[in-house]
Nucleic acid binder design. Structure first.
Lengths: 147, 147
DNA sequence: ACTTTACCTCAAGTTATGTTGAGGTTTTAT
DNA sequence: ATAAAACCTCAACATAACTTGAGGTAAAGT
């Protein structure tokens, strides 16, 4: 069938997530649906991309809240096109770069610091990395903010 | 006072964590203490390093469970020395490297994938990175396991 | 027609990592 | 000696991101 609309189970299967997760995302405002006669959810095809992007962003360490923030910058009226997604990608790419950078610094100081006395001191580079990432909202688990 | 032993408040202050966190770490078996006459916790100086290492490892994205696993490989009888910590560091360094690598791959495929149709397909490199990190236990937030 | 599968809602449970508060004891400072 | 600061335990709350289950409806297969 030339399905222009998808049921929740179909989306779940095609995206590799549980139906409950889709309910959850909808409740959080990350995806949208309408209902059919029998009150069942129906989705546009573009929900597949959204869910996929959610999963990709999560792998990057971005919270649902952060993802929602990014999604909110997508056009509301029309279905997001390639350029819309590219803009998102760009923003996240630099976030990823910062994160990678942070971990690299952590790695480089790890060996030097873990065995010496400095780890417990104020001066330790691991303990007090001079630069913190600018994370909006409640930061991802992997980072923490200025102590 | 030449304190060979520390109170919980002192450890908290020197490590920049809350007293409640120290209670919590103790309950999870990450640090140890004994009690004085009045039932108050007392710590050896080496607790400072332990707590610092906990915090550093957390920044790397390692869970408390994972940290406990690593700590369990430290000598039980004697206070861990430089070499013991160095071994830990080495293990974590390669874990960090894998993580960095993973994020780099994610970053590199992000732009190519997010705008195209592949994200929702089985073949997408973001969606199905061919190599998964070998994470023991319930993995860190930033990664997920073979779907 | 009838059964099975899919779906619905809403509340409660789960894991990780702590924090907060109540009610009570110890230490420390004055 | 007394008041303040620090500590104790234990239970409950907080947040993220979902999952599970109960009780009931809709759609699909035969």
């Amino acid at each position: 069938m030339a399905d222009r609309e998808l049921s929740v189970g179909e989306v779940a299967r095609r995206c590799g997530v549980n139906v409950s997760a889709l309910h959850f995302y909808e409740q959080k405002g990350l995806i949208r649906s309408w209902r059919n006669q029998g009150n069942q959810r129906r989705y546009k095809l573009d929900v597949l991309r959204r869910v996929s992007v959610i999963k990709a962003a999560q792998k990057m360490g971005i919270s649902l809240q952060g993802i929602k923030g990014a999604f909110d910058s997508l056009p509301d009226a029309r279905t997001p096109d390639k350029d819309d997604w590219a803009a998102l990608s760009l923003a996240w790419q630099s976030e990823l770069n910062e994160r990678i950078n942070y971990l690299e610094r952590l790695r480089d100081s790890l060996d030097a610091c873990i065995g010496c006395g400095c780890l417990s001191m104020k001066s330790c580079p691991i303990y007090n990395p001079d630069d913190e990432l600018a994370a909006q909202g409640p930061g991802p688990v992997i980072l923490d903010r200025k102590a």
